[in-house]
């Protein structure tokens, strides 16, 4: 819990297996430090805007990257994306959409809302590791440079 203020990677994923696989994929890429998993859209927004159970968090400490599942309970992924990207303080955080398919309507909407990139969660785990490596590293590095 004391690490919360230093969270670098936020994973928003309701499926615990998918969350575990994402963590494992990060680990395979040696990105295990300060990863936080939240399980629905509400929790994600509470964390980002330091409210609810994350009220004690330092708001100025922004995560360096958010991996956001598209389909979430309570508040869905697109809504979370919209909130983050329409706030001037949080819109600089790179958001990478995690999605099960290339359903065009979702992707088009995500890009309209300002998503930075997306990863189609492949059935083949090796491919997922590869995708996390390529896209995750890119945005993480880019954001570090900016900060």
């Amino acid at each position: 819990m004391e690490n919360r203020s230093e969270v670098e990677i936020l994973i928003v994923e309701d499926n615990p297996h998918d969350a575990e696989m994402a963590l494992r994929a990060l680990k395979k890429n040696k990105l295990t430090n300060n990863v936080l998993v939240v399980h629905d859209g509400e929790e994600a927004l509470d964390f980002v805007f330091a409210r609810g159970k994350f009220a004690s968090r330092q708001k100025s400490q922004r995560p360096k990257i958010i991996l956001l599942d598209l389909k979430l309970p309570k508040i869905d992924g697109l809504e979370v994306l919209k909130e983050i990207k329409s706030n001037p303080e949080t819109k600089v955080i790179p958001v990478i959409m995690l999605t099960s398919s290339k359903e065009e309507s979702d992707l088009v909407k995500s890009y309209e809302l300002g998503v930075n990139s997306y990863i189609v969660k492949p059935v083949d785990f090796d491919k997922f590791v590869e995708a996390i490596r390529e896209i995750g590293f890119y945005w993480l590095l880019l954001n570090q440079q900016k900060i």
Binding site: N15, D18, M21, R24, S100, K121, V123, F125, F128
Partner: peptide
């Protein structure tokens, strides 16, 4: 979306 999630878990 939904059919793929278990597949991913099986494979993963």
């Amino acid at each position: 979306h939904d059919l793929r999630a278990p597949l991913r878990a099986i494979n993963g």
